[in-house]
Design a protein around this nucleic acid. Structure first.
Length: 542
RNA sequence: GCGCCCAUAGCUCAAUUGGAUAGAGCAACAGCCUUCUAAGCUGUAGGUUAGUGGUUCGAGUCCACUUGGGCGUACCA
């Protein structure tokens, strides 16, 4: 519908010059009395043209060639809003459209032919995924889904590093636990990985190799085994919430393919780096950032910046139209350096979008639980899924704006099933399925022949809500804000539940019953499609 | 100190990105099941949108300052 109105304004702009470079904005008014869509163009223009907004609105209206079959009424309201009212024929026509498009209703081809890379999770294999990773994982996967719904071909990518100091410490942690199991006295340093999973891995090694690894170095079998085990667990955790990656990118590849080396050369060649105190520095202060930063330590080892930049260059070389990075807020200081470096080398960083999600704070008995993988003080994603099931966990993370800090009480998480609105949505779907099952035994079939019989407020509201779905998706995708889908679905489900209470199907006159069947069939499609984007099941029965 | 994020009902959060009377869930209170699933519906109560100023037709939303919180501020990632 918005597209139709845009086209009307486009035509009118040939007569009204001031409409030409105006970005139009249509929105759904807060109140039914104000119509179905509202436009504030006159208000915006009044400032620029120094004219009364209401007379401007009247002038615009006169120049719109409105199809009376689609919009039966327009009005100028308040300070100068132009309100549009849909005809009943247009409204009921929505149902047929939903039914016809089915599983594809809500998809758009706006970004057809474009390719996107969404990088998320990217946790190094040093321990199980925590609740914090869970938020990242769910949000990343949902953003990817959303992009697919607007036409992108999406690669979900996981970047990891299995070299370096962290991994040495991991290997040595396992080695010490192994020696402990063999009955040796060992000093287990505080800064080593304290988690129980380290002991489990040591146990497995002991079962496989007996005492034969007494003199094995930490970076040998210990590290390798730990990495394998942990990675397998990570993948299992991800699959348990329905996430599968297309690509795993190992940081090592950047070294073995000489990407780091050549990048260093390019910085030097462009005079963007220099040596000081035995280290190599990147001239970030000349690129608009606060201060210069080290890219190669005096030990000869690069800092994270160099591989990160090299890694992103590979994304540009792989020709993505959109490159998304999803980080937790603890990384908020790192990406500007990477972006500045890329920009200096001439890459089009406007293709990049960095999404930062805020932390999930776990509160237990009124106190905040500080999470640390190293100190083994964390709640794992697996524990959360055990307590609250995958659908509830996915919905829980999807339903909030990623920029908002999330609090949750662990005690509450355990009874989360009662409070999570996901069940409200699933229940609506299950109720529809139940009706459809029941009518199949009667002599009733969904029919679009008599949709004009759908005339109560709640029915009209429900249909109009269905119409908003595609625009909600597009809007959410353009802003990478997935929680809008949840808000929309909850509103839709609320109207449906009201409909369910007031408008019966069984025992109603045949034509009306069949029209209502068509309506709930359409509702079912939209709920199912919406939940699909969120990665949540739509059960037939509850 | 500096940078990013945040502050909305008792609690957890929305608010169409500057729009018309700030909305949901949970908790509280009062109702609704002999008819398609009560994991539902109806109603009541709950707000100086942290504070102070500013910008304009119009501010929860933008700007400045203040207060309070989270995350950073490494030759860790």
């Amino acid at each position: 519908m918005k597209r139709y109105l845009h086209s009307l304004f486009d035509k009118a702009s040939s007569r009204l010059d001031y409409l030409k470079d105006l970005t139009l904005h249509f929105e759904i008014p807060p109140n039914n009395d104000f119509g179905d869509l509202s436009c504030n163009a006159a208000l915006l223009l009044s400032k620029k043209l120094k004219r009364n907004p209401r007379t401007l609105a009247a002038e615009i209206l006169e120049n719109l060639e409105i199809d009376k079959n689609i919009i039966y009424k327009t009005e100028i309201a308040g300070p100068g809003f132009i309100n549009f009212f849909y005809t009943p024929a247009f409204v009921t026509g929505i149902i047929a459209e939903v039914l016809e498009k089915g599983d594809n209703y809500g998809r758009s081809n706006k970004f057809e032919g474009k390719r996107a890379n969404v990088e998320f999770v990217s946790a190094n294999p040093t321990g199980p995924l925590t609740v914090g990773h869970g938020r990242n994982a769910v949000c990343g996967d949902t953003v990817a889904n959303l992009l697919e719904w607007v036409g992108y071909k999406v690669d979900r990518e996981y970047y990891f590093n299995n070299a370096g100091r962290q991994m040495r410490v991991l290997g040595d942690s396992v080695r010490l636990r192994y020696l402990e199991l063999l009955g040796e006295e060992v000093q287990f340093p505080d800064e080593y990985y304290q988690g129980e999973y380290i002991k489990d891995i040591a146990e497995e090694i002991k079962n496989e190799f007996g005492a034969s690894l007494k003199n094995e170095p930490a970076e040998g079998k210990f590290k390798i085994k730990a990495e394998q085990e942990i990675f397998a667990d990570i993948e299992k955790s991800l699959i348990s919430i329905g996430i599968k990656f297309d690509l795993f990118f190992n940081e090592n590849l950047l070294y073995s393919d000489k990407k780091i080396e050549s990048l260093l050369g390019r910085f030097k060649e462009k005079n963007l780096s220099y040596e000081k105190d035995g280290a190599v520095w990147l001239k970030l202060s000349e690129l608009g950032n606060e201060q210069d930063k080290v890219i190669v330590k005096s030990t000869g080892e690069p800092t994270y910046r160099l591989p990160d930049i090299a890694y992103h260059i590979t994304k540009f070389e792989r020709n993505y139209d959109l490159i998304i990075d999803l980080f937790g807020s603890d990384h908020n200081a790192t990406y500007p350096d990477v972006v500045a470096g890329l920009q200096a080398l001439g890459y089009d960083t406007s293709k990049m979008k960095v999404l930062i999600h805020q932390f999930v704070t776990i509160v237990e008995n009124g106190e905040i639980v500080k999470m640390s993988t190293r100190k083994a003080n964390y709640i794992t994603l697996d524990e959360l899924v055990d307590e609250a099931k995958a659908d509830a966990v996915r919905y829980f993370f999807n339903m909030r704006n990623i920029s908002s800090h999330m609090n949750f009480d662990l005690a509450l998480a355990k009874k989360q099933s009662d409070e999570n609105p996901v069940f409200y949505l699933q229940y609506a779907h299950a109720r529809i399925c139940s009706i459809l099952k029941m009518v199949s035994e009667q002599n009733l079939v969904a029919s679009t022949a008599n949709l004009h019989l759908l005339s109560t407020d709640v029915e009209i509201q429900l249909i109009k809500k269905l119409h908003q779905f595609s625009e909600e998706i597009l809007n959410a995708a353009l802003q990478y804000e997935i929680h809008h889908i949840c808000v929309y679905l909850e509103e839709l489900a609320a109207i449906f539940h009201k409909f369910y209470t007031f408008c019966r199907i069984l025992g109603t006159e045949k034509d009306l019953a069949e029209a209502r069947l068509a309506l709930i069939g359409a509702v079912k499609i939209v709920i199912k499609n919406g939940l699909k984007i969120l990665g949540v099941n739509a059960p037939d029965k509850m």
